[in-house]
Design a protein around this nucleic acid. Structure first.
Lengths: 349, 349
DNA sequence: TAGTAAAATGTAATCGATTGCACTAAAGTA
DNA sequence: TACTTTAGTGCAATCGATTACATTTTACTA
């Protein structure tokens, strides 16, 4: 239990026969200390292997140098990557990252936020759960004066900054790409439209159709969850339609994969009969024998930028509640699942 | 800035005209408080929405209810899943999980541990980085009286508990399975043998050969990293050998996938010409058109058990430095990449 | 050399909760 | 009634660092 042996400024002050206040000032580079004492203190501090007690500091200052990250699941590639980005940006400047998962459940979300606030974190990064509707627990964070930053999945709450990708553009890019491949009856597998991200992707899909003068057919639009089975079921339903589809744009890579597996099972040729594009650029999309076209959300970058927004925000904290909305550009990764052999050249990455 | 409005025991004591000490005792269910005062305090605390200041408590007690997790990369599926397990087990009992990544670099590992100790975490969970040789930074954790628990990748340090899987058995299971499929010239793609996990898998491989009276051929054993290219290069080299191999057991799913892609490129039939088994049961292994046989490491369970070991350890902390070594059983998941059509029945899952 | 400004250091309160010790008041005993 | 227990509270120190304010020391000016 060397815990008890921890060296404090009092140990230094005793050894040098000066007051603890002076030691503190010396260690904090105050200009109100003579060069001689300064050197002496620093030397002794090093000798005794002094380490500032962050707890005492936190109690005094109210700041802990800890930030919280609240996500639905931490072992989903996307969220884990965002967290990595946050961690890489904040660790070098002395912050620690505390992670919490909500399991897509508002109750957990509320509880996690409550305990985070009670732990006096200096900021919260969060991607709301699917079941989140009411935002009063989010407002309570702001009431506490704790900066909150949404990433990817956000809610519209005044005073809250956010870092997202342009999901509308993502939806547009993917759909437009499919159209460029010659597809005309493009189905869309949407996610829970309660979440802005899925709504925007859907709207991007619609816009791409509109721009290309392709009529919208509501029968081609199905809501799925991010499970393979869900995508498979949708594909089955779609292929049963009298007028055959020739492409699928899925808001989820998992649903896209499920759809592909189901289509193959039904002897449907991919990409020539049906082209498929997913969303998220999950690692597996590029590993498949038939790699899947997808939209990359640059999650690590998203985390890094969210961290930067946080750092800016606490720097100019003087009640300047300027909310910042950063929107990243999604990247289309064209792969075999949508590269039609009839098309000579595919657009560049 | 409602931060300042935080209700303290002094607010309660003032309101009730009693001392803060009594309030504290009442809130902590001390038996030295009258029922009347107790009720009064609890009622007032609820009214004022009192929340215990964890920082003050931490300063006083030296315990923070935070634990640290140190892993090479947090967005690798395996580590993210272990963290999830730890989080799910510890959050309900009031702990917070702080995560750090080392990028497989000892320097970072040392630095992260140093700052974690300085933050007064109550315990550390860790998977050592590949470059870790010296263990003095680990001993310094013990010197500080902070419980340390290794998971998956461990070093032999007296007093440190660990939760791992039986990698030897994993290596044996996979290799034995390949042999059962009729394979006789089985190559092994090993990882960095500096890490115990890869060494054990290798030894399991050797043992399976020995038990089945298959001679070891050193030409069939190659060291790779966990990259696709590395596996592909190894496959190329192996297939160039005069006496053809008929199976590959890879310590890494990524290398296995790379090998499979390379073999296909060379028109080698899988699994009938060459059967392949990987290790880790990465999500993608089951998503492939040709799903890959692999060994599951039950990472979430591993995290949960590590958390339980930690909780036990701090409960009976009275210097009873009993180290606990939990070894989990790996699970072989047989998939198409190793199911030979010549074999009638495959062993059950 | 006295007088004053400037520099260096010390004192003590503060951040909230806990806890050993001391004290009061109520209850029990003879 | 006098005396001992004991239940119930309060006081004040403690955890370690910071900082406004007070005080001392040094340097400088006339």
């Amino acid at each position: 239990m060397r815990q008890k042996d921890k060296v404090t400024i009092y140990d230094i002050s005793k050894k040098l026969n000066i007051s603890a206040a002076t030691v503190s000032r010396a260690l904090n580079n105050s200009d109100r200390v003579s060069q001689k004492t300064l050197d002496l203190v620093l030397k002794t501090a090093k000798e005794l292997n002094y380490q500032q007690n962050t707890l005492a500091l936190a109690l005094k200052s109210g700041r802990t140098n800890n930030v919280g990250v609240v996500v639905p699941y931490i072992n989903h590639n996307f969220f884990a990557s965002v967290i990595r980005g946050i961690e890489e940006e904040l660790t070098p400047v002395g912050y620690h990252v505390i992670i919490c998962q909500t399991h897509e459940n508002v109750e957990n979300e509320i509880r996690q936020i409550q305990t985070l606030l009670n732990t006096h974190i200096d900021g919260i990064f969060m991607s709301v759960s699917k079941s989140t509707q009411d935002t009063s627990h989010i407002k309570s964070v702001l009431d506490d004066g704790v900066p909150l930053i949404f990433f990817d999945r956000k809610k519209d709450v005044p005073g809250v900054s956010s870092v997202t990708i342009n999901d509308f553009q993502g939806g547009f890019l993917a759909t437009d790409h499919l159209i460029k491949q010659g597809c005309k009856r493009i189905a869309h597998l949407s996610g829970d439209l309660n979440l802005e991200i899925y709504l925007k992707r859907y709207e991007g899909y619609l816009e791409a159709l509109r721009v290309n003068n392709i009529p919208v057919d509501d029968n081609l639009i199905l809501e799925v969850n991010s499970k393979l089975e869900s995508g498979a079921a949708a594909a089955k339903k779609l292929w049963a339609l009298p007028k055959k589809i020739d492409a699928i744009f899925s808001s989820s890579d998992y649903a896209a994969l499920g759809a592909i597996q189901q289509l193959k099972l039904m002897q449907v040729g991919i990409p020539d009969e049906v082209s498929v594009a997913g969303f998220s650029n999950e690692p597996f999309t590029q590993y498949m024998e038939l790699p899947i076209t997808s939209i990359d959300q640059t999650p690590v970058l998203m985390g890094k930028i969210a961290a930067q927004v946080f750092l800016e925000q606490i720097k100019e904290k003087r009640e300047m509640t300027v909310e910042k909305k950063v929107v990243l550009t999604p990247e289309l990764h064209v792969r075999d699942s949508s590269k039609r052999s009839t098309v000579k050249s595919n657009q560049p990455l």
